[in-house]
Design a protein around this nucleic acid. Structure first.
Length: 270
DNA sequence: AACCAGGTTGACG
DNA sequence: CGTCAACATGGT
């Protein structure tokens, strides 16, 4: 991979392929939006940026080079070789067609806290509105870094009452947000420590939070703990899986069920 | 204007 | 165990 800084920003090349629009705006995360010029503006944690595609390169604007090297590259999972994974998926007809259509969808390596909180909000909600709620959550309670509002820390949210969270208009999901913030900030759930747990133990831990069932726990594990073998089942994936794979997932996705899931989810929503 | 949205919970049989 | 309504809000 090559990373060079020039007057405009930072150019990254030689990382293989990436479907940037669908990776940043395909339901894995909720803080990016497309601009009129095709660039994506947004961020994660306390890091904001604008990302522009230039051929097979990426141009990062408005972020520091050190953050791009230390954070954004990993966030976009550019250090992972997807060729091998997708090659195996070719054995399945549906996935092969999805790869032809969508190219290389990468599984973002997001922060556990932001992912957990985001997917609590996602419950029985549509993506447009999820984005709106998270936007308000960040502008109301996140620290401002330049023109980007950081995702609020659990300590900040834990100090709030349900009433104080009403401006974000998250409805009944507020109770879950607060329970997660309280358990995480108090250390009752240590996100760094539990990242070492097995999938089943990790899921159980996450599900001890109010508003976190199996689906939200699994999305948190896939997108926030980089567990690519986890297969979150929402209403779309349930329907598609029963339809396509009544006798179980194909052997060729083993170990990367979560990646396959993201292709199927894209088929369902696009 | 009705139907739907990347569900979860608690009550009931 | 499985089913089911309630939950708060607004996008399409």
């Amino acid at each position: 991979m090559i990373i060079i800084e020039n007057n405009y920003g930072v150019r990254v090349s030689g990382f293989g392929k990436l479907n940037l629009p669908l990776t940043l705006d395909g339901g894995q995360c909720f803080r990016w939006r497309s601009l009129a010029d095709g660039a994506y503006s947004g961020g994660f944690g306390s890091y904001g940026a604008r990302i522009l595609e230039d051929g097979s390169d990426l141009l990062f604007l408005g972020a520091r080079e050190t953050d791009i090297r230390a954070r954004f590259i990993d966030y976009l999972d550019l250090n992972t070789d997807y060729e091998e994974i997708l090659q195996a998926f070719r054995e399945d007809k549906t996935l092969s067609a999805a790869i032809d259509r969508f190219g290389c969808l990468r599984i973002l390596r997001q922060e556990p806290w932001e992912t957990l909180c985001s997917f609590i909000i996602s419950a029985c909600n549509n993506i447009t509105r999820i984005k709106g709620i998270i936007d308000r959550l960040c502008t109301c309670f996140g620290e401002k870094n330049g023109d980007f509002y950081a995702f609020p820390a659990p300590e900040r949210l834990a100090a709030l009452s349900e009433g104080e969270l009403s401006p974000i208009r998250a409805g009944y999901r507020v109770r879950g947000i607060l329970d997660a913030a309280r358990k995480v900030s108090s250390g009752e759930i240590n996100l760094a420590e539990i990242s070492a747990l097995s999938t089943d133990e990790l899921r159980t831990k996450l599900m001890s939070i109010y508003g976190v069932g199996q689906k939200v726990a699994d999305c948190t594990m896939l997108f926030g703990f980089s567990r690519k073998e986890v297969y979150p089942v929402d209403r779309h994936i349930k329907r598609l899986t029963e339809e396509l794979y009544p006798r179980g997932l194909p052997e060729c996705v083993k170990g990367f069920e979560g990646v396959a899931q993201q292709y199927l989810f894209s088929l369902a929503i696009k």
